[in-house]
Every structure is written in structure tokens, then in C-alpha cells.
Simulated scan of single mutants.
Amino acid sequence: MQGGRVRARLDPLVIDVVLACVLAVLTIVYGLQGYEAVYRHKGWPPFGLLAIGLSLAVNLPLAVRGRAPWVAFVVSHGAFVAYTAAGFQPSANLWAPLLLCYTVIRNGPVRRAAWAAAATAATWTASGLAAPVSVELAVGQSVIGVGVVWSWAISNSRLAERNIQLAELTAQLRREQELRARHAITEERLRIARELHDVVAHHLSALAVQAGLADFVFASDPAAARKAVVSIGASSREALEEMRGLLGVLRAGPDTDDPDPLYRSSPGLERLDDLAERTRAAGLDVMLTVTGPRRALPSGVDLCAYRIVQEALTNAVKHAGRGARVSVGLSFEADRLTGEISDRGGSAPAGVPSNGLGLVGMRERVRLYGGTLRAGPGPEGGFEVVFTLPLAPLDTTRGG
């Protein structure tokens, strides 16, 4: 059979109907054969049509116990009381009322369950007293029988409640997993979009300025124009390299061994000198200083610091313009990395657009790693960006 083993699920109503019919048939067969032949005492009437009718009334209500348990309970117990009062053999119809008592206790409220248990105990006791047994035995078997049914019904009711709660919890967990998956996809898209913005904005801004410079000095200073064209080629190749890395991330399957290929495909502070050199080719005077014991950083923090410096230099190219002096300072401390990028003077180039998303991206990156960022006019003019990124403390107890 295709699709594995198929589990047939029967309608509970069908099961109850079959149970009622089987129990009714067994009771009538017992009454007609065993009761008359073996168990009938003197004074008990024969098992005739009245006994058969009352037995059917006792057992057949089991067929609707799932849909109308209290109605079935009342009808069955009423017929059982009439059967006992008519003087027929008492033990013939004991089990249907007990099973209906279980159904009411399991599905009904506590007050109704208590009434059902008391009524069943009373009818069972009356049936026992109608038989040639002692009062103690009649009461004892009633208490034991109803007690076992009560315990079984309450246990099954609690199990059913736990199963419902477990199903609800499973559904809730499934919904939360779907939300987390959607959130992860959204975060990944935002990270890739941020990377695309930083790569495209920086390189295109540099290309625009360098192309403008080459055009401006094409006739008067061919050497400077040639240098600008060479810088344009280098910037274009680096942009293509980073774009290929991002496209590689998008093509990577979900089973990749790299837990974070986006960071692996992106540059870090080891390429800061190249970044400064490209900015100098755009006409800015860049001074780069690094203080403190330089050390390897986590991939995400390394990329974050590089992108902040890159975006700050891109803003300087756009707004400070040619001839501006830009200082980039990085300080490696025991538990943090501090960076400061500031520009002075220069003339802003024309025709370089800005959408204001760069500062937003820098703040999002810094917030992602628990750092701080301040960007705005400097105390002596120009513009400055100051950021800090927390690092794992250095282990100073080990010798180098």
C-alpha cells in the first residue's frame, strides 16, 4: 500500500452502537439460558418479554452515550430500577449502568459526576439486596465498583485534558517556529540589503568622484587623470569581487558548512589600508592611525567596524569633497574597539546623490553588537563619526 500503513479511524458512534447491541444480546441470551437453567431462585419470575424489554432499555442507551450521556444514564438507570423492582435476577443488567456512570463522570462537571456516582451506587446496592447476599457484601461491591469507575474516569479525563493541552502547545510551538523562521529570513534579507547598500554606495561614490576628477584634469594634468582612471579600475574590480561574494551567499544552500557565509564573504579591518588608499585616489587626504594591541576580531564585529569606516569615508567623499583632510583612528582596548573618523575642509563635489541610509545602517550595525555610535558635526567643524564595539576581554593571566 502506498504512503505507508493507513490507520482506520472508526466513528465513536459506531463503536457505541456495536457495544450496546453486543451487551444487550449477551444479557438476553444469559437470561434465557443461564438464568432459567441455573441461577433462577424460587420466587423470581421467568425471563419473559417484560424482562427482555427492560434489558433492552437498560443496555441500548449505550449507543448514544457519546452524544447524550446524561439522557442515556437516566434512561438506563430507570430501566434497571424497574427491572430490579420486577424481581428478575439482579446481576443480569449490572454493567451497562456502570459503564454509563463512567461516561458521565468522565465528561460531565463534578457536581453531575457526583450525582451519577451516588445514583449508581444506590441502584447497585438495591440490586445486591434483591439477591440472596448479605447487606455488607451488597454495599461493599457497590462502593468498590463505583470507586474503581470513578478513579478510572477521573484519570482518563485528566489524560484527555493533558492531551488537549499538549496538542495546543504543539500548535503554538509550530506557529512560533514559523514566526522565528520568517523573522530569520527577514533579518537575513536586511543584512544582505545592508551589505548591498554599503558596497554599491561606497564604490559608486568613489567612482563618481574619480571620474569627475579625471574629466576635470584630463587636459591639464594627464598623469593625475591616468591615476584616477587606474583607481576607477581598481575600485570597479573590488566592487565586483564583493558583489560576487554576496551572490555566492545567495546561491549557498541551507546545508552549507559555514554557519554565517555572509560574513565570510565580506572584508574586514585587514583591508583598511586599501580602503584608505582608494579614498586618497578620490582626492581626500586620509591619515590612518591604529593604537593598542591589534588582534583578530570575530567576523561580524570585524565586518561591522570596516563598514562603519567605509560609510564614514563614503560620506566624506560625497560631502567634504576634494582636498579634505580625513583622519581615521582605531583604538584596540582590553574590552572594546573605539573608532573615530573626522573630516576637515574641502569642496563638496556636485552630482553625488545621498539618500541618508548610510547613518541608519551604521547605527543598526553598532546596535546589533551592543556598541554605541555618535555621528554629527565636529567641535571644530566638519563631520565626525565616533563608535565603540565591545570585545571579549583579553586574557591577561597568560604570558605571550
Results as ranks from 00 to 15, higher is better:
5 R>T: 14
7 R>Y: 02
21 C>K: 00
37 A>C: 01
37 A>Y: 02
47 F>N: 12
48 G>P: 11
55 S>I: 01
57 A>E: 03
64 V>E: 12
65 R>P: 01
74 V>G: 03
77 H>D: 06
80 F>M: 03
81 V>G: 14
83 Y>P: 08
83 Y>N: 03
91 S>M: 01
93 N>K: 02
96 A>G: 08
106 R>M: 11
107 N>V: 04
109 P>L: 12
119 A>P: 01
123 T>R: 00
125 T>L: 05
129 L>G: 01
132 P>M: 00
132 P>K: 03
134 S>G: 09
135 V>C: 04
137 L>M: 09
141 Q>M: 05
146 V>Q: 01
164 I>V: 13
164 I>T: 14
167 A>S: 09
173 L>F: 09
180 R>A: 15
189 R>N: 11
198 D>S: 12
206 A>T: 01
234 A>G: 06
237 R>T: 07
242 E>W: 15
251 R>L: 08
256 T>F: 02
264 R>A: 13
269 L>E: 06
274 D>C: 09
291 T>Y: 13
304 C>D: 13
320 A>Y: 09
323 G>F: 04
325 R>T: 06
327 S>N: 12
345 G>E: 14
354 S>P: 12
359 L>T: 09
366 V>T: 05
369 Y>N: 06
370 G>M: 14
377 P>I: 02
382 G>M: 05
398 R>Y: 05
